[in-house]
Amino acid sequence: MTVNATPTPGAVPLATEGYKPPKATHKARVLPGFGLSLGITLTYLSLIVVLPLAALLARPWEHGLDGVWQTISDPRVLASLRLTFTTSLLAALVNLFAGLIVAWVLTRYEFPGKGLVDALVDLPFALPTAVAGVSLCSMYAANGWVGSLFAPLGLRIAYTPLGIFVALVFVGLPFIVRSVQPVLAEFDAEVEEAAATLGATPLQTTLRVIVPSLAPALLTGFSLAFARAVGEYGSVIFIAGNMPFVSEITPLLIVIKLEEFDYAGAAAIAVAMLSLAFLSLLLVNALQLLLSRRGRA
Protein backbone atom coordinates (compact mmCIF):
# COMPACT_ATOMS: atom_id res chain seq x y z
CA MET A 1 0.00 0.00 0.00
CA THR A 2 2.92 2.37 0.00
CA VAL A 3 3.82 4.92 -2.60
CA ASN A 4 7.31 5.53 -1.42
CA ALA A 5 8.82 2.36 -0.03
CA THR A 6 11.35 2.15 -2.80
CA PRO A 7 14.23 -0.03 -1.67
CA THR A 8 17.32 2.07 -1.20
CA PRO A 9 20.55 0.58 -2.49
CA GLY A 10 22.73 -0.55 0.34
CA ALA A 11 19.97 -0.49 2.91
CA VAL A 12 19.16 -3.39 5.11
CA PRO A 13 16.52 -5.20 3.09
CA LEU A 14 13.65 -4.92 5.53
CA ALA A 15 10.91 -3.01 3.81
CA THR A 16 8.77 -5.28 1.73
CA GLU A 17 5.10 -6.18 1.69
CA GLY A 18 3.85 -6.71 5.21
CA TYR A 19 6.65 -4.75 6.78
CA LYS A 20 7.33 -5.72 10.39
CA PRO A 21 9.22 -3.43 12.71
CA PRO A 22 12.28 -4.93 14.37
CA LYS A 23 11.73 -6.41 17.81
CA ALA A 24 12.86 -4.06 20.52
CA THR A 25 13.70 -7.01 22.67
CA HIS A 26 15.87 -8.28 19.88
CA LYS A 27 19.56 -7.64 20.25
CA ALA A 28 19.89 -6.06 16.83
CA ARG A 29 17.82 -2.96 17.48
CA VAL A 30 19.23 -0.68 14.85
CA LEU A 31 17.29 2.54 15.28
CA PRO A 32 17.92 4.69 18.34
CA GLY A 33 15.45 6.51 20.52
CA PHE A 34 13.36 3.65 21.83
CA GLY A 35 13.81 4.57 25.49
CA LEU A 36 13.31 8.28 24.93
CA SER A 37 10.22 8.01 22.75
CA LEU A 38 8.58 5.32 24.86
CA GLY A 39 9.40 7.31 27.99
CA ILE A 40 7.78 10.45 26.67
CA THR A 41 4.77 8.53 25.40
CA LEU A 42 4.14 6.63 28.62
CA THR A 43 4.67 9.62 30.91
CA TYR A 44 2.42 11.80 28.85
CA LEU A 45 -0.34 9.23 28.51
CA SER A 46 -0.21 8.44 32.22
CA LEU A 47 -0.52 12.08 33.23
CA ILE A 48 -3.07 13.20 30.68
CA VAL A 49 -5.22 10.12 30.15
CA VAL A 50 -4.66 7.40 32.75
CA LEU A 51 -4.52 9.50 35.91
CA PRO A 52 -7.73 11.44 35.25
CA LEU A 53 -9.54 8.29 34.20
CA ALA A 54 -8.39 6.62 37.39
CA ALA A 55 -9.92 9.52 39.30
CA LEU A 56 -13.12 8.99 37.35
CA LEU A 57 -13.19 5.23 37.99
CA ALA A 58 -12.53 5.75 41.69
CA ARG A 59 -15.31 8.26 42.16
CA PRO A 60 -18.70 6.46 41.92
CA TRP A 61 -18.25 3.94 44.72
CA GLU A 62 -18.99 6.02 47.82
CA HIS A 63 -22.48 4.51 48.05
CA GLY A 64 -21.19 1.07 47.14
CA LEU A 65 -22.09 -1.14 44.23
CA ASP A 66 -25.77 -0.71 45.06
CA GLY A 67 -25.53 3.04 44.77
CA VAL A 68 -23.89 2.77 41.37
CA TRP A 69 -26.42 0.23 40.21
CA GLN A 70 -29.28 2.41 41.41
CA THR A 71 -27.95 5.40 39.49
CA ILE A 72 -27.38 3.46 36.29
CA SER A 73 -30.58 1.41 36.36
CA ASP A 74 -32.73 4.52 36.72
CA PRO A 75 -35.16 4.23 33.78
CA ARG A 76 -34.34 7.78 32.76
CA VAL A 77 -30.62 7.01 32.54
CA LEU A 78 -31.38 3.85 30.60
CA ALA A 79 -33.65 5.76 28.23
CA SER A 80 -30.93 8.36 27.65
CA LEU A 81 -28.32 5.67 27.00
CA ARG A 82 -30.65 3.99 24.53
CA LEU A 83 -31.28 7.30 22.78
CA THR A 84 -27.62 8.32 22.73
CA PHE A 85 -26.39 5.01 21.36
CA THR A 86 -29.13 4.49 18.76
CA THR A 87 -28.93 8.02 17.33
CA SER A 88 -25.13 7.77 17.28
CA LEU A 89 -25.31 4.42 15.52
CA LEU A 90 -27.77 5.69 12.92
CA ALA A 91 -25.77 8.87 12.32
CA ALA A 92 -22.55 6.87 11.89
CA LEU A 93 -24.27 4.43 9.51
CA VAL A 94 -25.66 7.19 7.34
CA ASN A 95 -22.28 8.90 7.35
CA LEU A 96 -20.67 5.62 6.34
CA PHE A 97 -22.44 5.80 2.99
CA ALA A 98 -22.40 9.57 2.59
CA GLY A 99 -18.76 9.79 3.69
CA LEU A 100 -17.72 7.05 1.26
CA ILE A 101 -19.40 8.90 -1.60
CA VAL A 102 -17.79 12.21 -0.63
CA ALA A 103 -14.36 10.58 -0.30
CA TRP A 104 -14.84 8.82 -3.63
CA VAL A 105 -15.75 12.02 -5.43
CA LEU A 106 -12.83 13.86 -3.83
CA THR A 107 -10.24 11.25 -4.81
CA ARG A 108 -11.55 10.05 -8.18
CA TYR A 109 -12.76 13.17 -9.92
CA GLU A 110 -11.22 16.43 -10.93
CA PHE A 111 -13.48 19.46 -10.68
CA PRO A 112 -13.17 23.17 -9.98
CA GLY A 113 -13.17 24.15 -6.31
CA LYS A 114 -12.09 20.72 -5.18
CA GLY A 115 -9.54 22.11 -2.73
CA LEU A 116 -12.20 24.16 -1.02
CA VAL A 117 -14.61 21.26 -0.75
CA ASP A 118 -11.80 19.14 0.63
CA ALA A 119 -11.07 21.80 3.25
CA LEU A 120 -14.76 22.17 4.12
CA VAL A 121 -14.90 18.52 5.16
CA ASP A 122 -12.88 19.46 8.25
CA LEU A 123 -15.19 22.29 9.28
CA PRO A 124 -17.00 20.23 11.94
CA PHE A 125 -13.62 19.72 13.65
CA ALA A 126 -13.02 23.44 13.93
CA LEU A 127 -16.40 25.04 14.45
CA PRO A 128 -17.19 25.16 18.18
CA THR A 129 -19.84 22.54 18.74
CA ALA A 130 -22.12 25.06 20.42
CA VAL A 131 -22.05 27.24 17.30
CA ALA A 132 -22.87 24.22 15.17
CA GLY A 133 -25.78 23.41 17.47
CA VAL A 134 -27.19 26.92 17.36
CA SER A 135 -26.77 27.16 13.61
CA LEU A 136 -28.33 23.75 12.94
CA CYS A 137 -31.20 24.49 15.31
CA SER A 138 -32.06 27.78 13.65
CA MET A 139 -32.02 26.05 10.24
CA TYR A 140 -33.98 22.98 11.19
CA ALA A 141 -36.56 24.60 13.53
CA ALA A 142 -40.08 24.77 12.13
CA ASN A 143 -39.50 28.43 11.21
CA GLY A 144 -35.98 27.89 9.78
CA TRP A 145 -34.78 27.55 6.16
CA VAL A 146 -34.81 23.78 6.10
CA GLY A 147 -37.31 23.07 8.86
CA SER A 148 -40.02 25.10 7.12
CA LEU A 149 -39.77 22.76 4.11
CA PHE A 150 -40.56 19.77 6.31
CA ALA A 151 -43.06 21.42 8.65
CA PRO A 152 -45.99 21.21 6.16
CA LEU A 153 -45.39 17.45 5.96
CA GLY A 154 -45.86 17.27 9.71
CA LEU A 155 -42.19 16.43 10.20
CA ARG A 156 -40.50 18.23 13.08
CA ILE A 157 -36.72 18.03 13.11
CA ALA A 158 -35.41 20.42 15.75
CA TYR A 159 -36.45 19.54 19.30
CA THR A 160 -36.93 15.86 18.46
CA PRO A 161 -34.54 12.88 18.33
CA LEU A 162 -34.30 13.62 14.60
CA GLY A 163 -32.59 16.90 15.54
CA ILE A 164 -30.05 14.98 17.59
CA PHE A 165 -29.42 12.77 14.58
CA VAL A 166 -28.81 15.83 12.37
CA ALA A 167 -26.27 17.26 14.84
CA LEU A 168 -24.47 13.92 15.12
CA VAL A 169 -24.28 13.56 11.34
CA PHE A 170 -22.60 16.96 11.26
CA VAL A 171 -19.93 16.09 13.83
CA GLY A 172 -19.31 12.60 12.39
CA LEU A 173 -18.86 13.21 8.65
CA PRO A 174 -15.15 14.16 8.62
CA PHE A 175 -14.14 11.00 10.48
CA ILE A 176 -15.41 8.72 7.72
CA VAL A 177 -14.15 10.86 4.85
CA ARG A 178 -10.69 11.29 6.37
CA SER A 179 -10.32 7.58 7.13
CA VAL A 180 -11.31 6.40 3.68
CA GLN A 181 -9.71 9.11 1.54
CA PRO A 182 -6.02 8.11 1.86
CA VAL A 183 -6.71 4.43 1.27
CA LEU A 184 -8.83 5.21 -1.75
CA ALA A 185 -6.18 7.58 -3.09
CA GLU A 186 -3.53 4.90 -2.94
CA PHE A 187 -5.68 2.08 -4.21
CA ASP A 188 -3.70 0.14 -6.77
CA ALA A 189 -5.03 0.99 -10.19
CA GLU A 190 -3.76 -2.31 -11.61
CA VAL A 191 -6.17 -4.30 -9.49
CA GLU A 192 -9.07 -2.37 -10.92
CA GLU A 193 -7.79 -2.75 -14.45
CA ALA A 194 -7.33 -6.45 -13.93
CA ALA A 195 -10.93 -6.74 -12.80
CA ALA A 196 -12.03 -4.82 -15.88
CA THR A 197 -9.94 -7.07 -18.14
CA LEU A 198 -11.65 -10.07 -16.58
CA GLY A 199 -14.98 -8.63 -17.74
CA ALA A 200 -16.23 -6.92 -14.58
CA THR A 201 -18.47 -3.89 -15.01
CA PRO A 202 -17.39 -0.70 -13.15
CA LEU A 203 -20.18 -1.30 -10.63
CA GLN A 204 -19.03 -4.87 -10.03
CA THR A 205 -15.45 -3.71 -9.66
CA THR A 206 -16.52 -1.12 -7.14
CA LEU A 207 -18.72 -3.38 -5.04
CA ARG A 208 -16.67 -6.56 -5.23
CA VAL A 209 -13.12 -5.28 -5.36
CA ILE A 210 -12.79 -1.75 -4.03
CA VAL A 211 -15.36 -1.59 -1.25
CA PRO A 212 -14.17 -4.83 0.40
CA SER A 213 -10.61 -3.57 0.47
CA LEU A 214 -11.86 -0.31 1.96
CA ALA A 215 -13.67 -2.18 4.71
CA PRO A 216 -11.01 -1.74 7.42
CA ALA A 217 -10.75 1.99 6.76
CA LEU A 218 -14.54 2.32 6.67
CA LEU A 219 -14.79 0.48 9.97
CA THR A 220 -12.16 2.71 11.55
CA GLY A 221 -13.99 5.81 10.38
CA PHE A 222 -17.28 4.36 11.51
CA SER A 223 -16.03 3.60 15.00
CA LEU A 224 -14.46 7.05 15.38
CA ALA A 225 -17.62 8.81 14.19
CA PHE A 226 -19.72 6.63 16.46
CA ALA A 227 -17.53 7.23 19.50
CA ARG A 228 -17.47 10.95 18.90
CA ALA A 229 -21.25 11.03 18.51
CA VAL A 230 -21.87 9.16 21.74
CA GLY A 231 -19.98 11.78 23.74
CA GLU A 232 -21.19 14.83 21.85
CA TYR A 233 -22.75 17.53 24.03
CA GLY A 234 -22.38 21.09 22.75
CA SER A 235 -24.14 20.78 19.41
CA VAL A 236 -26.84 18.44 20.65
CA ILE A 237 -28.32 20.29 23.62
CA PHE A 238 -29.31 23.25 21.49
CA ILE A 239 -31.30 21.19 19.01
CA ALA A 240 -32.48 18.23 21.07
CA GLY A 241 -35.41 19.62 23.07
CA ASN A 242 -33.96 17.78 26.07
CA MET A 243 -37.22 16.10 27.10
CA PRO A 244 -36.58 13.36 29.66
CA PHE A 245 -37.16 9.87 28.19
CA VAL A 246 -37.59 11.32 24.69
CA SER A 247 -34.72 13.56 23.65
CA GLU A 248 -32.43 13.75 26.69
CA ILE A 249 -28.89 12.56 25.94
CA THR A 250 -26.59 10.93 28.49
CA PRO A 251 -23.97 13.74 28.62
CA LEU A 252 -26.78 16.12 29.64
CA LEU A 253 -27.73 13.81 32.51
CA ILE A 254 -24.09 13.90 33.61
CA VAL A 255 -24.20 17.70 33.56
CA ILE A 256 -27.43 17.68 35.60
CA LYS A 257 -25.81 15.42 38.19
CA LEU A 258 -22.76 17.69 38.32
CA GLU A 259 -24.95 20.71 38.97
CA GLU A 260 -26.62 18.85 41.83
CA PHE A 261 -23.08 18.40 43.16
CA ASP A 262 -23.61 14.65 42.84
CA TYR A 263 -20.14 13.72 41.58
CA ALA A 264 -20.61 10.06 42.46
CA GLY A 265 -23.76 9.89 40.32
CA ALA A 266 -22.15 11.80 37.46
CA ALA A 267 -19.11 9.53 37.55
CA ALA A 268 -21.30 6.41 37.67
CA ILE A 269 -23.14 7.45 34.51
CA ALA A 270 -19.87 8.50 32.89
CA VAL A 271 -18.30 5.12 33.63
CA ALA A 272 -21.36 3.30 32.30
CA MET A 273 -21.26 5.37 29.14
CA LEU A 274 -17.52 4.85 28.64
CA SER A 275 -17.81 1.11 29.17
CA LEU A 276 -20.62 0.84 26.64
CA ALA A 277 -18.66 2.92 24.15
CA PHE A 278 -15.67 0.65 24.73
CA LEU A 279 -17.69 -2.51 24.22
CA SER A 280 -18.99 -1.13 20.94
CA LEU A 281 -15.47 -0.27 19.83
CA LEU A 282 -14.20 -3.71 20.83
CA LEU A 283 -16.96 -5.23 18.75
CA VAL A 284 -15.93 -3.12 15.77
CA ASN A 285 -12.28 -4.09 16.28
CA ALA A 286 -13.20 -7.77 16.42
CA LEU A 287 -15.14 -7.37 13.19
CA GLN A 288 -12.17 -5.66 11.64
CA LEU A 289 -9.89 -8.50 12.67
CA LEU A 290 -12.31 -10.99 11.19
CA LEU A 291 -12.43 -9.06 7.94
CA SER A 292 -8.68 -8.83 7.62
CA ARG A 293 -8.33 -12.57 8.31
CA ARG A 294 -10.87 -13.39 5.65
CA GLY A 295 -9.15 -10.97 3.31
CA ARG A 296 -5.86 -12.83 3.78
CA ALA A 297 -7.35 -16.32 3.43
Binding site: K20, P21, P22, K23, A24, T25, R29, L31, G33, F34, S37, L38, T41, L42, L45, V49, V50, L53, L56, T129, L224, A227, R228, V230, G231, E232, Y233, G234, T250, P251, I254, V255, A270, M273, L274, A277, F278, L281
Partner: peptide, 26 residues
Protein backbone atom coordinates in the same frame (compact mmCIF):
# COMPACT_ATOMS: atom_id res chain seq x y z
CA UNK B 1 4.95 2.56 17.96
CA UNK B 2 6.07 2.30 14.33
CA UNK B 3 9.79 1.75 14.80
CA UNK B 4 9.82 -0.85 17.56
CA UNK B 5 7.91 -3.89 18.72
CA UNK B 6 7.24 -4.22 22.40
CA UNK B 7 4.83 -5.93 24.74
CA UNK B 8 1.62 -3.99 25.36
CA UNK B 9 1.70 -2.01 22.14
CA UNK B 10 -1.94 -2.81 21.43
CA UNK B 11 -2.92 -1.53 24.84
CA UNK B 12 -0.90 1.63 24.34
CA UNK B 13 -2.66 2.27 21.04
CA UNK B 14 -6.06 1.81 22.66
CA UNK B 15 -5.17 4.26 25.44
CA UNK B 16 -4.01 6.67 22.76
CA UNK B 17 -7.45 6.53 21.13
CA UNK B 18 -9.32 6.89 24.41
CA UNK B 19 -9.68 10.69 24.28
CA UNK B 20 -11.74 10.29 21.08
CA UNK B 21 -14.30 8.21 22.94
CA UNK B 22 -14.54 10.34 26.08
CA UNK B 23 -17.40 12.81 26.12
CA UNK B 24 -16.04 16.38 26.36
CA UNK B 25 -18.17 16.82 29.46
CA UNK B 26 -16.24 13.98 31.10
Amino acid sequence: VTRFDFAGKGLLLSVLDLPFTISPVI
